[in-house]
Amino acid sequence: MGDSAIMLRRNFKHTVRNPTSVFNAILFPVILMLMFVYVLGDAFSVGVDYVDYATPGMILLAVCYGLGATATAANSDMTKGIINRFKVMDVSRGAVLTGQVVASMLNNVIAVAAIIGTAFALGFRPSASFTEWLGVIGLVVLLSFSVSWLTVALGLAAKSVETAGLATVPLIMLPFFSSAIVPADKMGAGVAQFARYQPFTPIIETFRGLLAGTPSAGDAIAATAWCVGIAVVGYVWATATFKKRA
């Protein structure tokens, strides 16, 4: 635990000192939200105020947009010999990965808080109860945990820092092919079917139901199952790659 805390502090300081990472993780999702709500919001007919519809999707986007920095940080430690220095210092191997994951989760939580604050400033008025807000927080943590492990695995598996950053592009783009921006029913044939059954749509719909005060058990079960599955794949892949390359 002590080694993990040290790695967490190290990784978090690296993120704070990198203006590009801070912009991508926190400020860019806020800019996207302002763009979609203020610039494009009136163009979408979604049956409710667009800020109410868009906020759940923006929460997921806020989580995804900080993943590139996590992947590059994990790859940098691996390819630049930092891991070997930690081994000489007798630092726990598990702490290296745990520090990356927890630092990524903290960045995600800050980004989500910025998105929700922006949403309230734009007129977002959720109907969620205290229990439903706890559900939102729990799902944010679970989602961050799962995609952070997958991102660390992608970073460790990449051959260079550049390819590590590119490896997260599908995760960043996937929310745009979900119900984050518009309902899947309004998409073209083929894309609509993909949007309905891809992992992020039930997660977004769970956020949307919780914030509206009308949660769906089916969406919540699907969202939890996807998050657990992604976390297991990411953890197994990351630890196996770390043991092989470190």
Rank of each mutant, 00 (worst) to 15 (best):
A103W: 03
A223F: 06
F242I: 11
S45Q: 15
V136T: 08
I82A: 15
S144R: 13
G123Y: 02
L142D: 14
T151V: 07
S92D: 14
G229A: 08
S104G: 14
L143R: 11
S146M: 03
G135A: 10
N11Q: 15
F28A: 12
W226V: 12
K159F: 00
I83E: 08
N75K: 01
P29E: 02
V22T: 06
I230Y: 07
A43G: 01
F86C: 05
F12L: 15
A25F: 00
N108K: 02
W149Y: 05
A167N: 08
F36K: 06
S104I: 01
A113E: 06
F23M: 07
A184G: 04
I82L: 14
G68L: 06
I26A: 01
S144P: 12
I172W: 13
M58C: 04
S104H: 01
M105H: 09
A231F: 00
N108A: 15
C64D: 07
A231M: 01
S21F: 13
A246P: 06
P29M: 02
A74H: 01
Y50N: 05
R196H: 11
F145N: 07
A69E: 04
E205A: 04
S148P: 03
V191T: 09
L174N: 03
G188W: 00
R196P: 02
L154D: 07
L210A: 10
Y65Q: 15
R17S: 13
P56H: 06
A223L: 10
L27G: 04
T15E: 10
G213T: 09
Q198T: 09
T168Y: 00
L122C: 10
T241I: 05
P175L: 01
I83N: 05
D49Q: 14
K13M: 11
A111T: 10
L122G: 09
D49P: 06
V112G: 14
A238I: 09
T239K: 12
A184H: 03
A212F: 07
L34C: 13
A167V: 03
A158L: 08
T206E: 12
V39G: 13
K13V: 10
S76G: 14
F242K: 09
S127F: 00
V22M: 14
I115N: 07
L60G: 12
S76P: 00
M58G: 05
V182Q: 11
D52K: 02
P183L: 06
V147T: 14
E132G: 00
S45H: 11
I221W: 04
T131W: 14
A95S: 12
P215T: 08
G213S: 10
G123K: 09
V147D: 07
Y50Q: 07
T118H: 02
A119C: 06
C227R: 00
G123A: 06
A220L: 01
F242A: 07
N84M: 03
G218S: 12
T151F: 09
